[in-house]
Nucleic acid binder design. Structure first.
Lengths: 142, 142
DNA sequence: CATCGTGCTTCCAGCGATTGGAAGGTCAAG
DNA sequence: CTTGACCTTCCAATCGCTGGAAGCACGATG
């Protein structure tokens, strides 16, 4: 029940991908995927080929997970991680990326809301009983 | 400028895919795709292999386009087209499909709205100037 | 020492709903 | 006969994952 490698988080120079996954909330499969597309740099390896993650790398993974949670695209996250690493960044640059994403969110919300409203109007007019008459189909049929 | 086939909409037993596209608002590529996945039945063909669409088939395409416009999935549209064709359908069944989709829309809207609100709060707290301090990155970094 | 179970590795494929392109056949008009 | 607009099929890419298969690595147990 204890660590199979005996180093669940310290001293050896990094944790395995499974532990990095647990610590960051990004599953192992996804971590490899993020590496493969270049979102995160290639991890170091043990002699036998296992990936190793330092606390700093786990931190990046957590960052990525949070950014995905806010709906940022991989491309935007790449930019954000870059800005995060850059101590001389301007907050204006970060804000620009965030604003761009907010605009996308706003557009998507508007689109979905319009769909929902149209649909709601149609559904409200539909009896929803055994009779075949249905304003929903009537509308779709044009 | 007139019809290349001389039958832009009548008498010959159907229009070509390009004309069906213009008439339905679904582009030709997409019509073929819809056929390939079984959303619409295989179209008839001319001797030389061109697809032909009757007014009724064009009508189905228009139906599909409107349903996609409301955000219904292909699978849901398949059900709706089936119900549309069935004169003995119950409006309750149609309403169920619509309601299911409205629930999905509602969930997505809630998700995106939560993202937008979080992001807005962070962005409002960000100066957006030359200084590197940024609550957005601060939050993402945890 | 052999074996077991778990975790790691790579690679390949699929999801949903399109869109794009390449390579080639068909048709009517000039 | 050539031109050009249409049609055909097939294959690949998009976005962000997720799943599976086949095979090595590792530690604990019998």
């Amino acid at each position: 029940m204890t660590d199979k490698a005996g180093n669940g988080g310290a001293a050896t120079g990094g944790v395995t991908i499974g532990d990095a996954a647990k610590a960051s909330g990004v599953n192992a499969k996804l971590i490899r995927y993020y590496e493969s597309i270049g979102l995160i740099p290639e991890a170091g390896r043990t002699a036998s080929g296992y990936r190793l993650y330092s606390p700093a790398e786990v931190h990046v993974l957590r960052f990525v997970r949070r950014a995905r949670g806010l709906g940022f695209s991989i491309e935007q996250i790449q930019t954000l991680v870059g800005l995060w690493r850059d101590r001389d960044r301007s907050s204006a640059e970060v804000k620009r990326v965030a604003q761009a994403h907010m605009d996308e969110l706003e557009a998507k919300i508007a689109e979905l809301t319009a769909m929902r409203d149209s649909l709601r109007r149609l559904a409200e007019a539909c009896h929803g009983d055994d009779r075949p008459d249905c304003p929903i189909l009537h509308d779709l049929a044009g």
